[in-house]
Design a protein around this nucleic acid. Structure first.
Lengths: 153, 153
DNA sequence: ATAGCTGCAAAGGTTTTGCATCGCG
DNA sequence: CGCGATGCAAAACCTTTGCAGCTAT
């Protein structure tokens, strides 16, 4: 899990991913590159299906499986994390250039707002220490009804 | 979502559920009663499959579907909440007699510890207000490696 | 040539639902 | 009787994997 919040360029992210592939002795692939480009340009959480649809617009010969497997690799490389909200669908979040944050989610329309609470980090560590756990990651999600959905009732 | 943390008896919980069923004009059912009894006696989060196994020990003629549907009813009645951790399996938590708490989960063995952080409530409301959301519920999960799993490496 | 890359189809793992039957009121 | 309660089987959903053919090195 990454903890540094410094900004890095798209190009640097690509290099990170390439080094990751090299370490594993993977080969180059035009299709995988395209998927990685699409993913790195995303600023919102998306499901693998969403990302598959975006990728297909650029190259309709790419299959879902390849998108799925590439997203897994992006997660292993540290550029991506899987998010699982209450609706049970896995979403992928672009991690770099994205300071740590938590999520505020509308239970009606699934709108998702990101917010920051530095206090959480402190509290988190306190609890991990108290129970002698080795910290891995945490998840804070607030569910409610967004202003738009409140209005339309 | 319940916010009161007072203790209530098993019998009172049953009455709450019965009133809930009456309001919906549901009929009595020996099997559903048995499932409710098993559920109300639980103190840990369990999957529907776990609960089904416990129920079958008391009456092997009860099917999974009935357990599943009864758990849904318990949720609607307010006695139960569904928890979805990162492993994707829905767990059911007995809500009454259970002050509000959050979860510390071992990423290796899935051990789950409950802890309390009153500060979270305050912070939560602050954020809901800031973004003008109507609060529904929240979820704080800390994932790490528990002492036992740390030791065995 | 060897080993990784791909797409398709199918398998897995869970949660839900359709339907015919049973049983409470 | 009428309508909810049940069990079984099957559908729905997503995620993951097997496999045969393709491609980079």
């Amino acid at each position: 899990m990454l903890s540094e919040d410094k900004m890095i360029t798209h190009k640097e992210e690509r290099r990170i991913f390439e080094r990751f592939l090299q370490k594993r002795q993977f080969k180059n692939s035009r299709k995988r590159d395209l998927i990685v480009d699409v993913f790195l340009s995303l600023h919102e959480h998306m499901t693998s299906e969403d990302i598959y649809q975006l990728v297909k617009q650029k190259d309709s010969s790419i299959g879902y499986t390849t998108v799925y497997r590439t997203l897994k690799l992006l997660c292993e490389s540290g550029l991506c994390v899987e998010l699982k909200f209450d609706d049970g669908v896995t979403r992928y979040e672009h991690l770099y250039n994205h300071p740590h944050h938590d999520h505020l989610i509308c239970v009606e329309c699934s709108t998702c707002i990101e917010f920051c609470r530095p206090e959480i980090e402190a509290m988190q560590n306190e609890i991990f220490e108290k129970y002698n756990f080795l910290p891995h990651h945490h998840k804070l999600e607030l569910y409610g009804v967004c202003p738009k959905c409140r209005g339309s009732k």
